[in-house]
């Protein structure tokens, strides 16, 4: 286990470094001069050169890269080209919205999807089992921003019970107010996310329900609940955890669109603005932090799987990932 932990950690670090390289190169390969966002129309060549010098894009690429990675190592994400404010604290401020939004949606989706997925599998041959599967099929085909629009229409415009968007300027000073502004976005993400989760929970449950050990346990006289608890759950939960990891990561990143529907001042809004202004440090910083979050979630999901499933722990297979 310790050897695995070390290897997996090494993989995490290498992945992060690779991500830094890919991010850096990808951004430089794309057209557009960030100096433009500092200048007004009709700037002289001298002014352009000065602007480039000011933000450091006139230096050779390897030098820019080394200085970026060097500062990354000290958790310094650099300063925005446009506002010249440090990127790190700005990201941290935005996470105050994005992280609760992600986690609340995730928890709600899991709370809905696990029982529904279980019932859909357990009652697969009944009409409501089929209806549940059908509804989840529908859920994965719906654009998430459309769900948000429909919810705003019903709850904000028609019934006037929820705010249509925005977030209190003093963040979480008044938790009730902050939670109210997050309610509709959370429901939006959770609805779409639970649809795909239901399908995975259903398949994992179907898998377990058809397994020999569950049947044997039942034949030996255990009640269904007891057999499921002792022999079913642990088996069903392992594949679901890797999916949960992926879903959590994609919710975090997918919040961009939903934040835009509900005008939430999260990471998404910052990214959209940074992209429009070619603000490399901002884009780099956000994408780097996002990648870090995604990789760490994957890391955690792998570890939890190993803890739950002894077969993975003792497997001789070399698969690190």
């Amino acid at each position: 286990m310790i050897a695995y932990l070390l290897r997996r950690t090494a993989f995490l670090v290498v992945s992060l470094l690779l991500a830094a390289v890919v991010l850096f190169l990808l951004l430089r390969l794309l057209p557009g001069d960030p100096a433009n966002s500092l200048l007004s129309v009709g700037a002289t060549p001298d002014q352009i050169a000065a602007a480039r010098h000011q933000i450091g894009t006139d230096r050779p690429l390897p030098e820019q890269f080394v200085s970026w990675v060097g500062r990354l190592a000290t958790l310094d994400l650099g300063e925005s080209f446009v506002s010249t404010l440090p990127v790190g604290p700005e990201i941290a401020a935005r996470l105050v919205v994005t992280v609760p939004l992600t986690l609340l949606s995730f928890v709600l989706a899991v709370v809905v999807a696990v029982p529904v997925g279980f019932v859909a599998a357990h009652k697969a041959n009944t009409w409501y089992g089929s209806v549940l599967s059908g509804v989840s099929q529908l859920g994965i085909a719906v654009p998430v921003f459309w769900v948000g629009m429909l919810l705003i229409t019903v709850f904000s415009i028609s019934l006037r019970v929820m705010p249509a968007g925005g977030f209190p300027p003093d963040d979480w000073a008044d938790p009730a107010k902050a939670l109210t502004s997050l309610t509709l976005p959370v429901v939006t993400i959770a609805l779409v996310m639970s649809a795909s989760l239901i399908r995975y929970v259903r398949s994992a449950t179907l898998d377990v329900l058809g397994s020999d050990h569950l049947r044997t346990s039942r034949a030996l006289g255990s009640s269904f609940a007891r057999a499921m608890w002792r022999h079913g759950l642990r088996n069903a939960v392992v594949p679901v955890i890797s999916i949960l990891g992926i879903e959590l990561a994609s919710t975090f990143l997918g919040a961009v669109v939903v934040e835009s529907v509900f005008a939430l001042p999260g990471l998404g809004g910052m990214l959209v603005k940074g992209l429009a202004q070619h603000d490399y440090p901002v884009i780099q910083g956000i994408l780097f932090v996002s990648t870090l979050v995604v990789l760490v979630i994957g890391f955690a999901a792998d570890l939890v799987q190993r803890l739950i499933d002894p077969r993975l722990r003792h497997s001789l297979a070399r698969d690190v990932r």
Partner: peptide, 13 residues
Amino acid sequence: ILIAFPTLLLAML
């Protein structure tokens, strides 16, 4: 790592 950037973010970029 490429997959860690979801489609939409890469596309936005």
